[in-house]
Design a binder for these strands. Structure first.
Lengths: 116, 116
DNA sequence: CAGCATCCCCCTTGATACTG
DNA sequence: CAGTATCAAGGGGGATGCTG
């Protein structure tokens, strides 16, 4: 397998880029960086996400080994999500992009309007 | 405008994240990091992209001020795309993510299969 | 060469409602 | 609380063909 060329459509790196490009995954990761968190907490912190989509996102991230899902046999039910080492290792790169975004958003919006 | 909370759905930072999440923008940016490039060159280096989508991507990136588009009045026509300073400033963060992707792709795919 | 025009499809995303 | 079920919609993305 060729992991050396992101430009190759068959390159598995594309898979990762797709996941990162996902609208919610990044937000979940940034959120969980503050520590383990329950479903409802995630949902309320990440504005605009529906339960279904949040569940989908969490399941996929779990399968990819980015987060863990721990169910406590209690009433009422409690489920905690947390970053794995792999997930944590992605935090810094993602965070750098987020910081860039926050820094340059204004400029981009300005240019976008100017060319509208 | 509140640029401080990525979790706010109205936060313009989301806009940038969306653009970055775009399937092709990242590839274009990585590609142009090697220097100015013509349409066809971009198209052949970025496997799997159709002209229409590539054009859309380039236009949007131009409007956002990430790249420039220079048309040479020649026959046959020649159009060169290049990164702006803004675009260049995004290269490092993006590149960090890409590197992460290449490094951890194998592990992710392994986990994904294991949980399938 | 560098693209625009068209048509189309599917797949994500979402709103709403319900449940173990 | 932490989800599932269902249904609807929209647009990103793609194939093809044409042109300045």
């Amino acid at each position: 397998m060729d992991t050396g060329d992101v430009f190759d459509p068959n390159c598995p790196t594309r898979v990762v880029l797709d996941r990162i490009g996902d609208k919610w995954s990044v937000l979940v990761l940034l959120c969980l960086a503050d520590g383990p968190m329950r479903f409802t907490r995630l949902r309320s912190r990440i504005g605009g996400v529906t339960p279904k989509v949040l569940t989908q996102t969490l399941r996929t991230m779990e399968q990819d080994g980015l987060i863990t899902r721990e169910v406590f046999a209690e009433v009422p039910p409690r489920v905690e999500y947390a970053l794995t080492d792999l997930g944590r290792s992605l935090h810094d790169p993602i965070s750098a992009v987020a910081t860039w975004a926050e820094t340059h958003v204004a400029e981009i919006l300005r240019r976008r309007e100017r060319s509208a």
